Simulated assay, not measured.
Amino acid sequence: MKILIVHRAKIPVILYGGIERVIWDLGKELTKLGHKVVFLVNKGSSCDFAQLVPIDESLEIIEQIPNDVDLVHFHFVPENVQRTKKPYLITIHENLITTNAFDLNSVFVSKNHAEIYGADSFVYNGLDWSEYTDPDFTKKRSHFHFLGKAAWRVKNVKGAIQVIKKTKSEKLKVLGGVRFNVKMGLRLTFSPRVSFYGMVGGREKEELLNGSKGLVFPVRWHEPFGLAIIESLYFGCPVFGTPYGALPEIVTEDFGVLSNRVDDLVAAVETSDSFDPKLCHEYALTEFNSRKMTLAYLGKYEKVLSGENINTISPKLKDSQQRKFLEWR
């Protein structure tokens, strides 16, 4: 089968790149399984295992679909997608606040994410763990970490800092943020127990995760999935977060603690050594790998290739969130 993967981004990813990392690993796994992959992505991309077609910004995306592909997998919602002449599906990666109905062939990235739009079709993200270094379980773990775009207030880096500052002596390393931020609401952090590393990637990020006691992740929105969660688990880090979005699906009692109360997470962080790093690692390795994700998508591909729709009714946002931020106290 020849599969076109479409996303408005440049690949491969260097630093953060959540969706870019997912589509790269998906394309690689499809190739390993004997399929041909074409990426329709932004100019400047490179890839050694698949054909690349650069997006022409002067044309609609659907006008740029090659004639010889069997199926198109969009990773955003293109204009006039219903006019696509090839079988297709769309993965919705984000929380899209809209009153418009979604395409019948929409797939979400967690059960909760799908349910928000009145759907039940989802595929968990998975990563190619062979691209990561093996965790060193003999290494001393000296800090906790936050991982994500800290400038997004829904990610609640303030809450993560608050949790750590209420412990007796724990330290936090913020991966994805800076100490002084006035862009997304004033944040001035002077605590010597909190350090900032900006948008780190590659081996530097892996070293920081491998030295961490756990991920502090008190998000204040319905997290669609959260690659930060599975990357942290892979390196043996339990997760201390809020019970929103996909977190309760991924973070069961063996792998962390979820609460929207600061004091609950403070207590959990201070007893983080009760979690088994090797068990966290094995969980991420077996449940959230790119092969498992790819096989799930192949099941969806077969469905649309046979002329069926992914959903029986068009997904639509069930309830607009009344508050911008979910409860944190």
Results as ranks from 00 to 15, higher is better:
Ala9Asp: 13
Pro12Gln: 03
Arg21Trp: 01
Trp24Thr: 12
Lys32Val: 07
Lys32Gly: 07
Leu40Gln: 09
Cys47Ala: 10
Glu63Pro: 07
Ile65Asn: 08
Pro66Lys: 05
Val72Leu: 08
Val77Lys: 09
Pro78Gly: 03
Asn80Tyr: 09
Lys86Thr: 11
Asn95Ala: 11
Thr98Pro: 04
Phe108Asp: 08
Ser110Ala: 11
Lys111Gln: 15
His113Thr: 10
Ala114Thr: 09
Asp120Thr: 13
Asp120Lys: 14
Asp120Ile: 07
Phe122Val: 10
Phe122Tyr: 15
Asn125Ala: 01
Tyr132Asn: 02
Lys139Val: 13
Lys139Pro: 01
Ser142Pro: 01
Ala151Arg: 09
Val157Asn: 07
Gln162Pro: 03
Glu170Gln: 15
Gly176Glu: 04
Phe180Val: 15
Phe180Leu: 15
Arg187Asp: 11
Leu188Tyr: 10
Arg193Gln: 11
Gly202Ser: 06
Asn210His: 05
Gly214Lys: 00
Val216Lys: 05
Pro218Gly: 04
Trp221Lys: 01
Pro224Cys: 03
Glu231Thr: 01
Gly236Thr: 07
Phe240Ala: 01
Gly241Lys: 04
Gly241Thr: 02
Tyr244Phe: 15
Leu247Ala: 05
Thr252Lys: 14
Gly256Arg: 00
Leu258Glu: 04
Asp273Ser: 13
Asp273His: 07
Ser274Val: 14
Asp276Glu: 08
Leu279Glu: 00
Leu279Asn: 00
Glu287Ile: 00
Lys292Asp: 03
Gly299Asn: 15
Lys303Arg: 15
Lys303Tyr: 10
Leu305Lys: 14
Glu308Thr: 02
Ile313Thr: 14
Pro315Glu: 02
Lys318Asn: 08
Lys318Phe: 00
Ser320Trp: 10
Arg323Tyr: 12
Phe325Val: 05
Glu327Ala: 10
